[in-house]
Each structure stands twice: as structure tokens, then as C-alpha cells.
Amino acid sequence: MDDHPCKHGDGCTCHSGVSRRGFLGSITTAAAGIAASGTLTAAPAPPPEKAQPDEPVKLQLSVNGRTHKVLVEPRWTLLYVLRDQLGLTGTKPGCERGECGACTVLIDGVARYSCLTLALEAKGKEVTTIEGLMKGEELGATQRAFVEEDGYQCGYCTPGQVMAAEGLLRVNPRPSMEEIRHGMSGNLCRCGAYVHIFKSVEKAAVLSASEKR
């Protein structure tokens, strides 16, 4: 694959043949082609996905079961897109450097920091935020547990705590107290409500189990 000369100058990674605006959409089909053919080497290699600085590109983002078509810049984090583009402000920025956990979301069911995830990296994945745990206007089991056990104070880290708990319980539905402490150790709570957070996760396991029954 050749780079073709363009007006962007040295270091530019513009790719020939595919318009910048269209490439992410086209990649989706190409990627599906790979999956169908079974092996990577057997299929013709799809061209790299590319996006230029400051140039928004199309991204299809699946959040809480809904597909959003958004224009994003390469440096936009998933956290930024969720909050400032989609208005899902339940997910909180705390440090924006992976040091507090307030921005925890589930990506394909796994708890991760949305501040350290480029929005473009979330393509093709299912993102679940605190809003996605709701059952209509009703709280989900993990959310309810945090209310009942008072697993918070100021509540700012809470969406992240709840998502971390949700991520933990999806891997380990009946965690021991030690497993809860370790599972919740990627979320700071400056109010220091940890004891109640631990109890909330214990309660969430019970509530989730009874909900599934």
C-alpha cells in the first residue's frame, strides 16, 4: 500500500483510494470479511484505518444498546464523546489520566477507564455506561444495592464504582469480601466510603442473583 503525496506535509498518513470521511464505515464491512474467511493471512489485508488531527471522522458507536453515528477527532477520548457529544454525563471525569476510576465503563462487558480509551478504539464494541444499567426508570440491581447500603457520599465517584462492581459481578457473581476489595481497588473514593461500598457490592451480588432467578 502506497502513501500518496498530499497537502498535509511530512508525517501525514493520508491513504490513497479511500476518502478520509468514509473509511471507518468501509472498514466495518472489510473487518466482517476477515471474520468470515477465518484467518487473517488468507484474506486480502484491509487498508489501515486513518484519521487526521483536528479532522473529525465518522464513528459508529454502540452505547447501551443504541447505535450512535458521531464525528470524532483522533484525540477525543471515549469519556469525552460519551459526555460532551452524546450527553451521557453519568460517566464522570476525575483525573483523565487513569488514576481514579470515576470514568469506568464496560467495554464488551469488561470494566475499563473511558478516559484512557480513544473513542476510535471503541469502534465495533458495546459500551455500557451507568445509564445503561437502568431498566427504564427503575434502578438496576447494582445501583439499588448502592442506595440501600449507602455506598457513597458525594456521589461523584459512584457511577464509576457501580460500573466497576457490575464488571466484577459479571466475571464473579458471588465474590468473597477479599475478592470485592480487590475488584473495587481501581476506583478511588475520596469521601472514603469504602466500607459501605464493599457492603453494596455484597448486596448487589444478592440482588442480581435474585433478579436472575
Binding site: 489485508a45 489501515p48 483522533p74 484525540r75 480513544l118 476510535l120
Partner: peptide, 25 residues
């Protein structure tokens, strides 16, 4: 404060190496 950067996601190792060999990658 993330600065501006371009983003490339190659699907082959050959392309990845090529992209990484460029200045500032």
C-alpha cells in the same frame, strides 16, 4: 491535555511496521 495527533489502525503487521517507522509515530 491531549495534543493533536493522527490516528492509524493497521490490520497487518507489515502495515503497522511501516506506519511506526514514520517520524513521530
Amino acid at each position: 491535555m491531549l495534543p493533536n495527533f493522527a490516528y492509524v489502525r493497521p490490520s497487518t503487521l507489515v502495515d503497522a511496521v511501516k506506519e511506526l517507522a514514520k517520524p513521530g509515530a
